[in-house]
Design a binder for these strands. Structure first.
Length: 530
RNA sequence: GUCCCUGUAGCUCAGUGGAUAGAGCGGCUGCCUUCUAAGCAGAAGGUCGUGAGUUCGACUCUCACCAGGGACGCCA
């Protein structure tokens, strides 16, 4: 054989089970470099290989694959390994304890969360679960935009509504928030605080009332997210970046490095120096910093002060254009830009059957996240949001999610768990102690197919952690439920055959562990009964 | 005009450069005396947007076009 550079050798799961548990196309790749016949290469390689004890056989297959089949007694022994690992099954050590921050939702606290925000919320919380299971130390964070012009508009809008509700003629600013929730908010304040803000000077009233309203809004957002099973470790205030000096520090740092320039009254971040299309304003002509400036300070804080190894931001599609300049900022701070990863979650179109439901903050008919959760339920919401890759736009059909809930994939998956629980319950009622069960008695095709599926969980966790694509979880959950249902149909678990009963109970318990873990990672409940 | 995402079964969407492209829903045919029929089994349904290119091999990579969505602000 001629000496050539070795191509990368890796294993894959063949889609056709007749081709074994693992396959490698290494001979085909080597054939390209060496010019030799791939089948001959396969044979040569096989002759040189020493088989690991868990491998039953290897065969070559045209046009140049090597296929590996696992020993069935090794497979059945894995049932014991899964039972032993318990809740920890599926955990891996990819992250080796490194620190990763996941920042998500971070919606302006100027209005209630809508459906699209729910998608980012579920993505972020699920990803955080998977990264934790992958050996990372994860910090979940919500960045509160509590400074800037949008907040001013919110404050003045609330003051206007407050006056109106007290019978005083007042106007809502043209760029203000016109939604009816602002009226509700004003009324709530009146109920709790009365008309006392009317006696204050206008500037003071706007500020005090505004802060009160903002606080209520943030608490409402927190509650809405909680109902979706989403929580945060840190709620980070944009304001604090000005109060605690990060803004000043990072600006002088960038100025020192020559990334700051004055043009036409404003101060600019010179991102063109880093290959960007255009520069961006950080301080306006009137001296007020932009949102971009605050975000620069925020990322200075993330990387240089808090020293996260990785930072993952989940943003809506409307922030796509922000990605490359944020990476430019990170580079300007002397941080390798790969340490900042941004997931863009594409838009959600809400539908009721064939009708598209418009989502607009201006009009009155917005569907809030809370309404969605109330209508569809937490678990179904999470599953639907998770079942599409983040960079695909998705249709969320309320009618389907609600009316046909019996055919909903989420119930299909949860039903499998309830069935498992039911079997284990019966075993307990009958006092069957299966701890001495012999798993080697598990030999039929549906049983081995189930075991093979259970063994994919650690790989799945790794795939999701590497790709940051949690949607794979939903497909795995459905596959797992399918093979379990099939097993259930074919294999009677609790029967007259005591030894086989015990062996199968062990397998069922392992299946429960894996299905429950998958549901846990997705932030869903694993019901004992349905 | 520039940048980003998407285009795969009737619908909604998966798919690591490899073997016969998959799932759910909808429609069709069967299956409940036994641990949950919210289930199982089966058949049907495809020019993988179009056209080139790279490769032993392309749904996957490159380029060009077409279509849908988003972004191009001293808003966030």
């Amino acid at each position: 054989m001629p000496a050539v550079a070795l191509p990368e050798a890796y294993l894959e799961h063949p889609q056709n089970p007749e081709h074994g548990d693992y396959a490698s196309s290494f001979p085909l790749k080597l054939a390209r470099a060496s010019g030799a016949n791939p089948m001959n290469i396969a044979e040569d390689i096989m002759r040189l290989m020493t088989l690991a004890p868990e491998i039953d056989s290897i065969v070559s297959a045209p046009p140049g694959f090597i296929n590996f089949t696992l020993k069935s007694n090794w497979l059945t022994n894995q049932v014991e390994s899964i039972r032993q690992a318990g809740d920890a099954y599926g955990n891996i050590d990819l992250g080796r304890g490194s620190r990763v921050q996941v920042e998500f939702v971070s919606v302006n606290p100027t209005g209630p969360l809508h459906v699209g925000h729910g998608r980012g919320a579920v993505l972020g919380s699920t990803l955080s679960n998977v990264l934790s299971a992958s050996g990372y130390k994860v910090a979940k964070e919500y960045y509160i935009n509590d400074a800037g012009s949008q907040i001013d508009a919110f404050y003045h809008s609330l003051y206007g509504r407050y006056q109106q509700c007290l019978g005083i003629e007042a106007e809502i600013p043209a760029d203000g928030y016109l939604g009816s929730y602002m009226i509700d908010l004003a009324k709530e304040v009146i109920t709790e605080e009365g008309d006392r803000f009317l006696t204050l000077p206008e500037g003071e009233a706007v500020l005090q009332l505004g802060r009160l309203g903002l606080d209520k809004m943030i608490r409402q957002i927190e509650k809405d997210l909680e109902s979706l099973g989403v929580s945060f470790d840190v709620w980070f205030s944009e304001q604090s970046l000005y109060q605690k000096g990060q803004y000043q520090t990072v600006m002088s740092l960038l100025r020192q490095r020559g990334y700051i320039a004055k043009k036409e009254d404003a101060t600019w971040f010179v991102s063109t120096a880093l290959g960007e299309d255009k520069d961006n304003v950080v301080v306006r002509g009137d001296g007020s910093p932009t949102y971009f400036a605050a975000d620069i300070a925020y990322h200075y804080n993330k990387f240089l002060e808090r020293q996260f190894d990785r930072v993952i931001n989940i943003w809506g599609a409307d922030h796509q254009g922000h990605v490359s300049r944020m990476k430019a900022v990170v580079a300007a701070l002397g941080i390798s830009p790969e340490r900042l990863e941004v997931i863009i979650s594409q838009m959600v179109t809400l539908r009721r059957g064939d009708d598209v439901v418009r989502i607009s903050k201006r009009s009155g008919d917005i569907i809030t996240l809370r309404e969605l959760v109330e209508e569809v339920g937490k678990d179904a919401c999470r599953f639907f949001f998770l079942s599409r890759s983040a960079n695909s736009q998705m249709d969320f059909d309320l009618e389907l999610a609600k009316k046909e809930s019996a055919d909903n994939p989420v119930y299909y998956v949860q039903y499998a768990h309830a069935r498992i629980a039911s079997i284990l319950r019966l075993a307990q009622e009958r006092g069957i102690d299966y701890r001495d069960g012999d798993v080697s008695l598990v030999t039929t095709a549906p049983e081995l197919i189930l075991i093979r599926k259970l063994l994919l969980l650690p790989e799945l966790v790794e795939t999701v952690a590497r790709s940051l694509e949690p949607h794979h979880l939903t497909y795995y959950a459905q596959d797992l439920a399918t093979v379990f249902h099939s097993f259930y149909k074919e294999c009677r678990v609790i029967s007259q055959d005591e030894a086989l009963t015990k062996a199968r109970l062990k397998l069922v318990e392992a299946a429960r562990i894996v299905l429950a873990k998958t549901l846990y990672l997705m932030g869903m409940t694993a019901p004992e009964k349905m």
